[in-house]
Write a protein that binds this DNA or RNA. Sequence first.
DNA 1: ATTACTAATGTACGAGTAA
DNA 2: TTTACTCGTACATTAGTAA
Lengths: 217, 217
Amino acid sequence: MRDLLILLELAQAGAHIAPCRLSSKTLATKLGVSQQTAARWLIDLERRGLVTRALDRRGQSVQLTKEGQATLHSAHQRLSSIFDARPRTLELKGSVTSGLGEGGYYMRQEGYRKQFKRLLGFEPYPGTLDVKLSNESRELKATLENLPGKRIDGFVTPERTFGQVKCFSAKLRGVRVAVVMPSRSAHADVIELISAKNLRKSLKLKGGDAVNVEVTI
Amino acid sequence: MRDLLILLELAQAGAHIAPCRLSSKTLATKLGVSQQTAARWLIDLERRGLVTRALDRRGQSVQLTKEGQATLHSAHQRLSSIFDARPRTLELKGSVTSGLGEGGYYMRQEGYRKQFKRLLGFEPYPGTLDVKLSNESRELKATLENLPGKRIDGFVTPERTFGQVKCFSAKLRGVRVAVVMPSRSAHADVIELISAKNLRKSLKLKGGDAVNVEVTI
DNA sequence: ATTACTAATGTACGAGTAA
DNA sequence: TTTACTCGTACATTAGTAA
């Protein structure tokens, strides 16, 4: 929860680039807590893989790990999406997951298909690629959930009602795709991608493959 | 401490622009805490003037105050200074304060003067203009304290030892100045400015005058 | 100087619940 | 349904130290 402020302080001391000598007392003063608490927080960050430390008799050197940097970067992107009005791109990281095959059922509905074609400019392949998001990206998904995106209206068939969804243009390994999600935020850690072709086949993806999705917002 | 994450969530829900209907339960889910805790946090933010709320029998509307927005904006600037490599400018607001006249003593030391001339390109007037920072700018000063700046080495005279300081180029009402501060962060809410001329005279400044200092970082 | 343990204290959390 | 109170418990923090 308070990771962000600690990492921010560490990064401002240069620990996002190189190992940085920083005593627990100094950090404690900057953060307004006791030396003991600052030390404990650092130990905790190290245990969770957000920083690495090197101890010696003179003190310690601290450096942010990739994950630590990713945490800060994610926060920066969230803030940027608030303060920068212009269109931006947001990078979600995750891995291909098998999913429930449920997405395909929806993508076969003509009521959705014709809207996708109009809004995205391509006829979607009747299936979805599900991507399980990494820890850092999970927070960025909240950004998407709060942005309007392109609205796909709901509709009614004799069998049932289909709810409103929204989508965002995106790129996956250079291929034009779209992120589809319910308009009412279902707070899941998985995003569903659609494209003109079968993404698993055309990109030769299999479950567990790491992927980056570049979403245009 | 955790204000940032709450404000971030509120802003992503649109509460930085307009009053935003948001139940404590919804917020609680987004933040991963209980409804009671989310409610308590909101009450606390309201008490400290970071948000305003409007209660009715259906629930509540929440909106960020200027101070709430400033808190987020300050965090955004700190993060931007980390991720945007290009030179940036940081704006500190405050008012002219009389100071202790102590700065002038330091600025008369030849050990400092020759270094200032070399690093800044001008011979500093032997006095400082002290600016008491506003609340929001105080946090931004932490950014400066953590940035390297231009290093002015310490030195020893027969009388005493002078510590290492650092400085940043800046502009004050269009005039080229520099912000000087100890390398070891003395967490004060005042910054000291030096310039080629007597700033009080050349800019006709007097105690209490509001000033903006544009620092190049 | 440091880091970081232990023990005592303090504070925050959420269950239950009222309005 | 909401918001938000009380209160017992659990966790976080710090003082005092050891290494």
